[in-house]
């Protein structure tokens, strides 16, 4: 029987339900005076908000997400092998499994070194100006 799995689903449902109930119960008694002037404008330190916030932001977040994706998949893939390593050691084939994991990790570390050398791990990226200073 899937007793544990049902428990997890109950937890998720109860978590969602608790937030919903608290917000719904609060809606019955809390004041609603949204008609007041300037109350429902975007907060920008007392200034009028300039335009939307949905503009292009720095692509380094996107690069970071890509790097994360690679390494997170690596961790997920390693989980089952690492769990089984102890059993294999007891069976006497632990050394082979260890070398296999090591090879996998080395390939990934080469990837990390590649990113490092390429400068993708730097937060501040320096764009080299192609025109020399004298000519400017």
């Amino acid at each position: 029987m899937l007793f544990e799995e049902y428990m997890v689903f109950t937890f998720i449902a109860l978590g969602m339900g608790f937030v919903l109930m608290a917000l719904a119960a609060g809606a019955l008694i809390r004041p609603k005076r949204m008609d007041l002037d300037k109350r429902n404008t975007t907060y920008e330190c007392g200034e009028e908000a300039l335009g939307q916030a949905w503009y292009n932001f720095n692509p380094r977040f996107y690069l970071l997400a890509l790097v994360f994706l690679i390494f997170d998949v690596e961790v997920v893939v390693t989980f089952p092998v690492i769990v089984a390593l102890r059993q294999w050691t007891e069976l006497g084939t632990g050394a082979i499994a260890f070398i296999e994991i090591l090879l996998f990790v080395i390939i990934l570390v080469i990837g990390l070194i590649f990113l490092w050398v390429r400068g993708d791990l730097e937060w501040f990226k320096h764009i080299i100006d192609p025109t020399p200073e004298e000519e400017v």
């Binding site: 937030v19 809390r30 109350r39 429902n40 975007t42 908000a49």
Partner: peptide
């Protein structure tokens, strides 16, 4: 619990409500 639930006009309302 008794505070007013201010939702600014400019927000994407479904996502704004769902995040918590």
């Amino acid at each position: 619990f008794l505070k007013e639930d201010v939702i600014p006009n400019e927000v994407d309302k479904p996502l704004f409500r769902f995040a918590p």
